[in-house]
Lab assay of single mutants.
Amino acid sequence: MDALKSAGRALIRSPSLAKQSWGGGGRHRKLPENWTDTRETLLEGMLFSLKYLGMTLVEQPKGEELSAAAIKRIVATAKASGKKLQKVTLKVSPRGIILTDNLTNQLIENVSIYRISYCTADKMHDKVFAYIAQSQHNQSLECHAFLCTKRKMAQAVTLTVAQAFKVAFEFWQVSKEEKEKRDKASQEGGDVLGARQDCTPPLKSLVATGNLLDLEETAKAPLSTVSANTTNMDEVPRPQALSGSSVVWELDDGLDEAFSRLAQSRTNPQVLDTGLTAQDMHYAQCLSPVDWDKPDSSGTEQDDLFSF
């Protein structure tokens, strides 16, 4: 819950932080000083300027060897085509990944977070970031790969997607708890209302004896509580940590079903599988986004697919 609360507080303090972009060759504004600060901008989305290598189908939802083989196929196909790589912007948030063309600003792909089953910074092609997700059109699994400016960037994108998945799962947990509370309150309110109706004398007997209905007592009954809980029953509950912020979080049926399955089948359902080692994760978390744009010590960066 700490990640969720800190993310909400950060967004309320400075929503404009989320509009910064990394990996864009110096076009961005001043960047936060450390990885923790940038992680807090996830709610509205972190932007990464990358190059799209392509996509291939895979048979399993996750796995280092599986993704490595898929990336190898994608890279080989991209090299064989001889075409310049498409420059894209990857927007990562707890909602998922939005992929747009840098030149036309046209939407290429919009992947809900619950469809993503794996992401990684490839070991062999260490400047490549990739994720595996279920197609929104059918049940097939797709591996999408992107060329980053350097290994640090690939690791940073991988960690960002993993963190977005974690925050999304926490949102789901909060929403589920809130819905259970509202359902319980609604049920209790309905029981109270039913009890009051059972003990209320029939209207005919009131008229016969000349008694008047006590409207004041009726007004004191917990009807307002019942209506408050039943009027918006169809509205999706939102985490309290975000009250007053500009973010509107809505959970669709697909996300609810997917996270429910994860909660039942996995020990740590909030953790998205990645190909990063503990050492890689520690190294990337210690980086400032400013470091992502620094040239690798191995030599001059080449803006070309064939540089790796």
Rank of each mutant, 00 (worst) to 15 (best):
L31E: 06
S81E: 11
H137M: 13
P32I: 14
S135N: 14
D304H: 07
A156N: 07
V174E: 05
G96V: 12
S307M: 04
Q270R: 03
F306E: 01
K204P: 11
R27P: 10
E217L: 12
R39C: 06
N232V: 06
L31Y: 11
V75D: 00
I132T: 01
L11S: 15
I74V: 11
M46Y: 10
L42H: 13
R29K: 13
E44P: 03
L103I: 14
C143Y: 00
D234P: 03
L17S: 15
V226C: 10
R115N: 09
S117G: 06
K72V: 11
M281R: 11
L255C: 07
A168P: 04
T230L: 06
G54Q: 00
K62M: 04
A263D: 03
T89P: 00
H137T: 10
S298L: 02
L223K: 07
D37P: 13
Y52D: 02
T89F: 09
S117E: 05
S260K: 01
A70S: 01
K294S: 08
T274I: 08
T36H: 11
S117K: 11
V92T: 10
E64P: 13
L193R: 11
L43G: 08
A162R: 05
A68R: 02
L276R: 03
S14T: 10
V226F: 11
V161D: 00
V92K: 00
L272R: 02
D101N: 10
N229I: 05
P222Y: 15
Q155S: 05
L50W: 00
T274G: 02
G63V: 10
E250G: 08
A168N: 03
P239S: 12
L255P: 03
P269Q: 01
D234T: 07
V236S: 13
K220F: 06
I97Q: 00
Q173W: 12
W292Q: 09
K123A: 14
R39T: 10
S6K: 14
Q163P: 00
Q134G: 11
N268M: 10
L193V: 04
R9F: 13
Q270T: 04
G244Q: 02
G82R: 01
F165M: 03
M55P: 07
T160Q: 06
W249V: 04
T89Q: 11
Q163I: 10
D198R: 06
L47W: 09
S224D: 07
T274M: 03
G210M: 09
K220P: 11
W35R: 09
T149L: 13
S298V: 06
P222E: 14
T158I: 10
S21C: 14
Q136R: 10
A70M: 02
D253G: 08
P201D: 03
D252Q: 06
N138A: 10
A221Q: 07
E235A: 14
V161H: 00
S246F: 03
L66F: 11
N229W: 03
V207P: 11
Q279H: 09
V161M: 03
K72G: 15
D280W: 02
C199A: 09
S93H: 06
D273C: 05
S175F: 02
F165T: 02
V192H: 06
P239H: 12
V271L: 12
A121T: 10
A168L: 08
D253S: 05
Q136I: 04
A18C: 10
L57S: 04
A195F: 01
S16H: 05
T100Q: 09
K62I: 03
G24P: 10
G82I: 01
H282N: 07
K184T: 13
G82M: 01
G23D: 06
V290C: 07
Q60C: 08
A156S: 14
A208I: 07
V290K: 10
D273H: 05
A162H: 02
M124W: 05
V58W: 02
R95K: 03
L4N: 11
Y283D: 05
E59G: 15
G254P: 07
T300H: 10
I113D: 03
D101W: 06
G45T: 09
D252W: 03
P15A: 00
E170C: 04
S135W: 00
S224I: 12
M46F: 03
S186G: 04
L213Y: 03
V271R: 13
I97F: 02
E64F: 11
E235H: 02
T36G: 14
A145S: 08
S288V: 10
W35I: 11
N229D: 11
V271T: 07
T200Y: 05
E178M: 15
L42W: 07
G82S: 02
Q139C: 13
A69Y: 07
I98A: 01
E257V: 07
L11N: 13
T230D: 09
G210F: 03
S16T: 06
T38E: 13
T274C: 03
E40G: 11
V248N: 14
S21A: 07
I71K: 01
R27N: 14
S288G: 09
Y283R: 08
V226L: 12
G275A: 10
A80P: 00
